[in-house]
Design a binder for these strands. Sequence first.
DNA 1: GTCTATACTGTGATAGAC
DNA 2: GTCTATCACAGTATAGAC
Lengths: 205, 205
Amino acid sequence: MVGLPNRDRRSERREATRQEILAAAWEVARVNGIAGLTLREVAVRVGMQPPSLYSHFDSKHAIYDAMFAQAWRNLADAITAAEKGAPRSPRRRLEYFTRVFVDFALEEPSRNQLMNVRVIPDFTPSPESYAAAVDAFELMRAKLREIGVTRDRDMDLLTALIAGLIAQQEANDPGGDRWRRLIPEALTMYANAVGIAGSTQGRKR
Amino acid sequence: MVGLPNRDRRSERREATRQEILAAAWEVARVNGIAGLTLREVAVRVGMQPPSLYSHFDSKHAIYDAMFAQAWRNLADAITAAEKGAPRSPRRRLEYFTRVFVDFALEEPSRNQLMNVRVIPDFTPSPESYAAAVDAFELMRAKLREIGVTRDRDMDLLTALIAGLIAQQEANDPGGDRWRRLIPEALTMYANAVGIAGSTQGRKR
DNA sequence: GTCTATACTGTGATAGAC
DNA sequence: GTCTATCACAGTATAGAC
């Protein structure tokens, strides 16, 4: 541990370039879909020749891997940021954070596909990137625990319910709210079954 | 209406070849994933040169389109075939047909992705193929109506719940049953909320 | 260390001979 | 209807200029 702190301008610049490439990759994915990502288009947007990308990423899969990790870190950040402004009643907290999650997923369909669907033929996230996913997942788990969802089965049931609303919304009414607007109804059903404090027992018909 | 009935041997042979190609495409998709389908591998399995496929399908997307229609027709057939052996009580019918649907989806992940997730960059099913999806959907709708699910919102909620179980099962526990085994619990929750005849009101904890 | 130039492989697609 | 030849363009890899 001798010498100045590692404050290389070089490595800072290098990291900035990596981020620039990732930002361009997200743009392309937004337009072409996550499977339609091409290094060519990414390079054009960054103002490089396609092979130059290999100075910063080992392969196209390495770019997907970095995007995967970044997506889950962004979700964790969104959850943390949403804590201020969160209601206190368990039932209302449940709905509040569900909306945070659903809106995050619907905001960018290709990001959601990369995070939650195995859609790139040979891509499997690296252990480091998968750890980012686990971190975000544990964050949600902790929130659920506060709310009163403690059994693993109940958590799995909730993730399925939310994932289903997102999947149906994106597949059958993209850009609309046909399933998104069912959130209150879905959570009332869930809260009654699992027993969340502050949930209404009735149902308006 | 003059002449013999249209019993061309030529067109029969032609249709048989198309089916052969589709069967080979399903095999490739099963191995490489639906997005990993290549005309080369399809051609090899059929014993053709890749360009020869264009005598039978206008493009790769046309193959996807035929696969899409076939998949939905197969689902409709599976639902129809399951009618014999179906229980009579609404609550048990609900669970029975849910299992038919979930098992069909889990049976071949790439088929499920083609049917329910927009995963091929520029592919949108043709009106004719989409009609096959609508037919199958209407079949399920009719079954649900018998069971007592009549409101559109209630149907949408159920499709979301089922799609969510499938999505989570495939994404986070492929080949296992971590979410699939939640079917009874999920449907009890749903049946209690929507009011299906013959549903238990309690919950074992 | 970083980018350019170039080339190799594989893929979807088309044209034309048989 | 099938094949051969060929094209355009993707991802990938290496060599070399600066």
